[in-house]
Design a protein around this nucleic acid. Sequence first.
DNA 1: ACAAAAGTGTTCTCGGTACACCCATGC
DNA 2: GCATGGGTGTACCGAGAACACTTTTGT
Lengths: 251, 251
Amino acid sequence: MVNPSISVDCVVFGFDGSELKVLLIEFGRKMNNADPSQLKLERKLPGSLIQEKEDLSAAAQRTLVELTGLTNIFLRQLYVFSDPNRISRPEDLEWIKNTYEIPVSRIVTVAYFALVKIDKSVLQHTVEGVSKWHGVQSIKQLAFDHKQILMKGLEVLSQQLLNEPIAFELLPKRFTIRQLQNLYEAILGIEIDNRNFRKKVLNVPCIKLLDEKEKGVAHKPARLYRFDKAMYEKDIKKKMKYNLNFIRFTD
Amino acid sequence: MVNPSISVDCVVFGFDGSELKVLLIEFGRKMNNADPSQLKLERKLPGSLIQEKEDLSAAAQRTLVELTGLTNIFLRQLYVFSDPNRISRPEDLEWIKNTYEIPVSRIVTVAYFALVKIDKSVLQHTVEGVSKWHGVQSIKQLAFDHKQILMKGLEVLSQQLLNEPIAFELLPKRFTIRQLQNLYEAILGIEIDNRNFRKKVLNVPCIKLLDEKEKGVAHKPARLYRFDKAMYEKDIKKKMKYNLNFIRFTD
DNA sequence: ACAAAAGTGTTCTCGGTACACCCATGC
DNA sequence: GCATGGGTGTACCGAGAACACTTTTGT
């Protein structure tokens, strides 16, 4: 029995202030071997086979460093896709064979999702490279089963956004309340009352008001805030406070 | 490069009315080759290498049918454990070699957790077999990195118990409010006010009062309820109701 | 009749919701 | 001075939390 190969694929999320973005790799696929110049352009999630003596998260990080130039990226396991036929279309098998140059019987992929602050350095990297940011709404299809992986990524992202302070991984270090609100609205697809949102956010101790304000905008400049992660992590341990709120499946 | 083998390991949870239980496999390990009669008794999570053309969840289900006799078990992915050295102690390598009788370079394991109603049929199966139920509190150590997997299982179980109606997977079809409360208290390690709990539970439309009552108890017999899963799943779609409750990392 | 667990109601408090106007800046 | 988004306060309502006694059965 031949063991399956294991790959990691990464759903890399970014937020540009108004829309949730995903980083995709573009690649050309030969339409037929007779005329190799005919390429069909396709998109896929960034990914890689894992190497010997390499952890899955190490493999994911390796993939992401190449793509974004960033180390210390927020990265979490998403799900494992293991359908024996998940890569079975002839053109997919062909591509795998050509790309990895080793015999591959079957690929089990562990999907990760990453949260990235889209700043100048990342933009430069991604503009220069083969990867490009795409608005999630505009993504119609992806190679292999990557659309399915993306959907899972969106599901888990929404879920975790509701329960953990991961929004800040997508925002600049210094951000405005409005940016934070836009992020929740865009990802969750909801509308939030701005006054209530402010009230709520300003009561969170680990969201700290800074001295600085926005600059160069044609309206009243917004105050900047930062998320005090260290404080959050210190506090969270004490506050294992449950309330009956927990039967959340109620409504 | 040799591909890693892929296994599934299952954290099988059950609830006996007062304590959270886990199903463990007991096995003897040779202390040394010179005297094979000396066995060291150890415990591990049930698991198996995946087979060709087999999905991970299929592999997990296959493992569980053998153990519990049940099909249609509640089963979810937990986490992937992929540290290249997760199985590196000489005795672990030895055991793997002897058990699987194929060369194994490295094992990446996908952990699943399962929720089981411990009823007569399951008890009979597990009593007869090599697996045994253990109270989670009493589990001191497990073979390989299985203790770590178990801890992850507990973490995810608690988490999901707070957000989804999975408690009912651990209870008999017909249950009392008190049983449900005990379950939450035992797994989450909290105390809940019985009156408030009842108020809350009775307001959940998909928890239905039955005509029957408990029998043969030396006190006022409790009413029995059932969880209407179909109703829950129908309703949940409409009710994608968000409130500002969502910034849950607040407190 | 007594032991043992089931079942029941009220008050308080806190946090979510709805809602409309003035403020600071760039042009 | 005007357009643009930033920032502020109040009243209502629903749900969680705290808390103690009566009811029904088996023995």
